[in-house]
Each structure stands twice: as structure tokens, then as C-alpha cells.
Nucleic acid binder design. Structure first.
Lengths: 162, 162
DNA sequence: CCAGCGCACTTGAACATTCAACAAGAAGGT
DNA sequence: ACCTTCTTGTTGAATGTTCAAGTGCGCTGG
């Protein structure tokens, strides 16, 4: 009845850490989005789609794989790719092999130009928001902590971190 | 031309840390939301509103202050409070003092019951997702890192961490 | 006193995300 | 061959968030 899963209250240290964590979860994504929205008219999720495509051989990735890489649901991805397609940055194609139900997304030349123009500003913002604010030691700690939390919150994503 | 703000690329260590961080930013909020949605029909933002109200003297907080505590825009808060009002958990009131333009939100009895019923499950999930996955030392590191990142991404919020 | 400005908050429309339903190809058993 | 079931992906409606006005109070300078 009073085993460990039934004694839920947090210690002071834990409460303070929880507050810092949640504040970070609420403030960092909007900050990242703001720069991308302002400078490139896309959000972070769309950036990750374009970026994953641009890293892939042939600038081509299957939808289901792309959903993993961008860490979103297939439905969310499908809507987002539709938006990117409307801008001319991505194209959907049916693979001509045996697997007829598979769809791949391909980065267009315009999309390549777009992501290459956008990346430096995004990286600069990442540096400003995160790396300028932390010591190298903290960066290492953050990576470890991040991996472990992803493992507990979304195990299926942790392979993408490699 | 090549001063430090113009050399934007990340080192390998930084890139790995960035990937772990973003994966965490994308996976933790949905995991927290999922539990609250399933067990209480609210999202994390609404939980924080109710929880902040329940911690406040008189179960009463001004809208603008509440927006800070819940780490959202005033507009987002206003919409969210409208939803909570529709459920009977919160009431808006004009303060009867001199400041006629100020609005406060008050937690109702139903709202109090609701948040008290919901808190244990939420805390249990916080423990499962975060504290069970980290050492006490990492929890301390996370708090420090979180504070510093909030400071750089949303300075106006860092006072709420105290 | 009143004109102008800023603050606190609300509102509605545009936009993004989730959710549940659907379509259609593959795979496996009978 | 046929039925079932799983996987892959799309779609539209419901929900939530952002963005750009808009309202109304209070303050300050002329």
C-alpha cells in the first residue's frame, strides 16, 4: 500500500530541479522557433525535416523514417511535408520498386538552397541560446542527461541519437 | 569578417549535445501531456495554471502574474482560463479596488478538488520520467543547466524560479 | 481638463497539432 | 483464392496556440 510508487511527493531539491526543467521546456522551443520564423518563415519541426533530408544520401528519405528523424508523428509529418511541398522545397514520390505503398520525400534544389541559407543563422542562435551559456563540462552533462531522459520518455527515438 | 559571431559551425561534441537536447525538448512535453490528458483531460499548461492558483494565497492570482507563473503569453493564458472557466474550475473576477482594469483568476472548490486529485499522478509521472532516470548528482546538474538556459532564452522568466 | 500614450486584458482569425477514421499494399494462415 | 491483420500513409475535423487588432483604464504633460 505504501510502496515506493505510492509515495509520490518530491523533495525540495527535486521540486526546484523540476521547476527549472519545465521552465526550460517551455522557453527554449519558442526561442528557437522565433528565430527561424523571423528569418526563414518556418518552425523548428520543418527545419528538422529539411535538415534531415539535406543530410540524407540523394536528399531522399522515406516518410516513416523521416518522422523518426524529425521526432514527430506520421500525421504531423504528412501535414508539414504538404506545407513544404506547397513552398516548392520538397517533393513526394512513390518509390518505383516493389514496395508500392512507400512514399519518399525528396529535397528540391530550391529546398537545398533554402536550408543552406538558413542553417548558419540557426546554428548561431543555438550557440547563443545554449553553448554560450554553458561550460564545456555542462554541455557534456547535458548530453548525457538528455539521452537518459529521451530514453525514458520516448525509447523509440533514442536510436536516432546514435 | 571572420570574428567569433561569424564562425557558426558546431563541434562534434556540441552537435551531439544539441541533438540530445532537441530530442529531449521534443519528447518530454508530449510525454507529460499524455499522462495529464489521459488521467485528467487537461494539458500541462492548464495544469500549471491550476497548480499556481492552488499555491497562491486565497487561491487568487492576477492574470498577468499567472501568465508569468505558467510561462505563457497573456493571450494563451486568457484562452486557457476561458476553457478552465467553462469546466467550472476557475472564475474570473474584477478586483474591487482602485485598479479597475485588473482581472484575477480564482480557483473554485471544484477546481481545488480537481487539482488535488490530479497532482499525485502527475508527480508520479515526473518521477518516472525524470528522477528515476537520473542520479541525484545529475538532478543537481540539470537544475543548474536549466536555470542558465532559461536565463538566456527567457530572462523575464528566471525570477519565477526564485 | 483633455489629448496622447502605455498597460492589462480579450477577441477572432490564421495557423499548427492531434485524433480518429480511412485507403490500400503486404504478409500470413486456411 | 480468400479472409484477416499489420504496416504505411493521408485526410478532415476538433482542439490548441499564435498573431494582430481592439477595448478600456490610468497616467502624464501641456
Amino acid at each position: 500500500m505504501s510502496d515506493s510508487t505510492d509515495v509520490p511527493w518530491l523533495s525540495d531539491d527535486e521540486r526546484h530541479a523540476w521547476m527549472a526543467l519545465t521552465a526550460m521546456l517551455m522557453s527554449l522551443p519558442p526561442a528557437i522557433d522565433a528565430q527561424l520564423k523571423r528569418d526563414a518563415g518556418i518552425n523548428f519541426f520543418e527545419y528538422q525535416i529539411l535538415s534531415s533530408l539535406s543530410d540524407a544520401p540523394g536528399h531522399t528519405v522515406r516518410m516513416s523514417q523521416l518522422a523518426h528523424l524529425a521526432a514527430g508523428s506520421l500525421s504531423r509529418l504528412s501535414h508539414a511535408v504538404s506545407r513544404l511541398e506547397r513552398q516548392g522545397w520538397v517533393q513526394r514520390r512513390n518509390v518505383d520498386t516493389t514496395e508500392a505503398r512507400c512514399v519518399v520525400a525528396v529535397l528540391t534544389d530550391a529546398g537545398t538552397a533554402m536550408i543552406e541559407a538558413t542553417a548558419p543563422g540557426h546554428v548561431r542562435e543555438a550557440r547563443r541560446l545554449v553553448f554560450d551559456a554553458l561550460t564545456p563540462e555542462q554541455v557534456a552533462q547535458l548530453e548525457k542527461i538528455g539521452r537518459q531522459l529521451v530514453m525514458s520518455a520516448a525509447p523509440h527515438l533514442s536510436n536516432c541519437l546514435k
